[in-house]
Amino acid sequence: MKWVTRVSGIVVGVDRSEPSERAVRFAAALAKRDGTGLTVVHVIPWSPYSFNTPSENEERHRRRDEEIAAATEQVIAPAKAAAEEEGVEPETVVRHGDPVDLIIEETEKRGCDLIVMGRSGDSRVKRAIFGSYPAHLVQEAPVPVVVIP
């Protein structure tokens, strides 16, 4: 399998957690070694099938802009800085939706062959009920997934 020796395109899924930063550094180092592209993806969890109050709907457009701005500033910017420290200039993506589906979509769209992600810091209860994003991703991704502790 070609990716074992040489990766051609890496997607790293990020959030605010510490493992996430380590994931970016790992992915960046790998991307630099193999001279390939790195895409930093942050997905704001959102579903078109949720139930909202009228005032939530009224403010939704503004909130969406605020969420994207906050994610860009607080999640993407530090991740980008970390990647740059490792010597890689990453492409960045912020989207709303299902994190697992969208990380897979971004991976396929770019023809990347590796996904890197930090281990999620969810509580045991939350994990028991909903599972964790990395676990879902490992099960559904079409390419290998590296989960960084």
């Binding site: 959102w46 009228p54 709907n57």
Partner: peptide
């Protein structure tokens, strides 16, 4: 069901959400 919803509109109020809110009223 979102068959016509463009990906770039994710995060905005969907048809389902507008309908659900109206129905709950």
């Amino acid at each position: 069901r979102g068959r016509y919803s463009k990906p770039e509109d994710a995060g905005e109020v969907s048809h389902f959400q507008a309908l659900a809110t109206a129905v709950s009223g």
